[in-house]
Simulated scan of single mutants.
Amino acid sequence: MILELHLLQSFPVSNLNRDDLGQPKTATFGGVSRGRISSQCLKRSARLLFNEHGLDKSETGVRTKRLRNEAADILIANGRDGEQAPGVVTAGLEQLGFGVDQAKGLTEYLLFVGRQAVDHLAGYCDTHWDTLAALAAAKDGKKKAPKVKPDKDATAEAKRLLDASRTADVALFGRMIADNKDFNIDAASQVAHALSTHSVINEYDYYTAVDDLKPDAESGADMIGTVDFNAACYYRYTNLDLTQLQRNLGDDHDLTARAARAWLHAFIHATPSGKQNSMAARTMPSTLLGVARDTGAWNLANAFLKPITATDLMAASTAAMTEHFTQLRNFYGTSGLRSVVAASVTSDLPGIAAEDTASSLEDFTTRLLTATEA
């Protein structure tokens, strides 16, 4: 069973997701420049909302390089030597197969783990304190020890540390660990880069600021700068493979159902945080299309291969998306489709039957999730 979510969301002046130059990200699509919001940005924006939509904090994970210091703090709080603890945890991580920069106290790469990982790591280091302390002392100030292949017991402990069978966001978005593919998790959810439905050219705001305590006799600005921005109507697409999600969560039906509901609500409410204090582009999606299907997946971005040029971007984008969806249904058939639900705050929904139209967000999400239970 696969859930698909298609959203049209218009943002006013904003810089939601910046590139290396500080400009809003873009992509060329259909021969013209479009506004773009990366999939990673959208995933993070949604992931930070999971606890607001039915998942306990213990059921969500963290992406971090700072396992060493967190585990060392626990050991110190439990009475272990404060000077030795960081080195012991470093040695412990290295014994488990994870490289650590001793000077910075960071693992080589971000690890996506459940929140219990820090406690597990601290417990492992406490149990093997003497052995790990000796290894740490033998490093002679070297920043990083050569990588060692974990033995059977260390591998089992590493699996315990990285266990994500109760961690919904790791189950949803997957995990890749280059050093050991056994710890990889196939993502249950795919997320597309959001693209503007129309051509977009980035602009910039020239601003000045004045010192409030400057004498009246003095003139001129005390700070001058520019901030890049654009304004665009974006098409957003994501899907969720419920079978994969349930597999990732150890066949826990209750957690799978709550994770799916949190996923749906979080992606609808997700708004990137870039430059929000300066621009407050806090808008909600105007058009929502949800699909429950047994097989396949349809990204509807090609509805906008020819950029929208109408004055009413949302109405024209809505019509283009729903009509493209209808064309796909007519051509490829509906055998794989279990349910279609659409809703719009502002526009008509061409090609969508009245019985497939939801009147509210609660109606929309309830219908879509109920379809997965049939």
Rank of each mutant, 00 (worst) to 15 (best):
T226I: 15
V227R: 14
D228H: 14
D228T: 12
F229Q: 03
F229H: 08
F229C: 07
N230D: 03
C233P: 08
C233L: 12
D241Y: 01
T243M: 07
T243S: 05
L245Q: 00
L245C: 02
Q246F: 00
Q246L: 03
N248P: 05
L249N: 00
D254Y: 08
D254P: 02
A257C: 02
R258F: 06
A259Y: 01
L264I: 10
H265E: 10
H265F: 10
A266D: 01
A266I: 05
I268V: 07
I268H: 01
I268L: 05
H269C: 15
T271M: 06
P272I: 13
P272W: 12
S273W: 10
G274K: 12
K275V: 06
M279G: 01
M279E: 09
M279H: 12
R282C: 13
R282K: 15
M284T: 14
S286Y: 11
S286I: 12
L288F: 13
L288Q: 05
L289A: 05
L289P: 00
V291Q: 05
V291W: 00
D294Y: 12
D294P: 10
T295Q: 10
G296W: 02
G296I: 05
A297E: 08
N299P: 09
N299C: 11
L300A: 03
K306R: 15
K306L: 14
I308H: 04
I308M: 04
T309P: 02
A310H: 04
D312L: 11
D312R: 08
L313Q: 13
A315I: 04
A316F: 03
A320G: 03
E323F: 09
H324T: 06
F325I: 03
T326P: 00
Q327L: 12
L328Y: 01
R329L: 06
Y332S: 14
Y332H: 14
G333K: 00
G333E: 09
V340M: 07
A343F: 12
A343N: 08
S344V: 02
S344F: 04
L349H: 08
L349Y: 07
L349C: 07
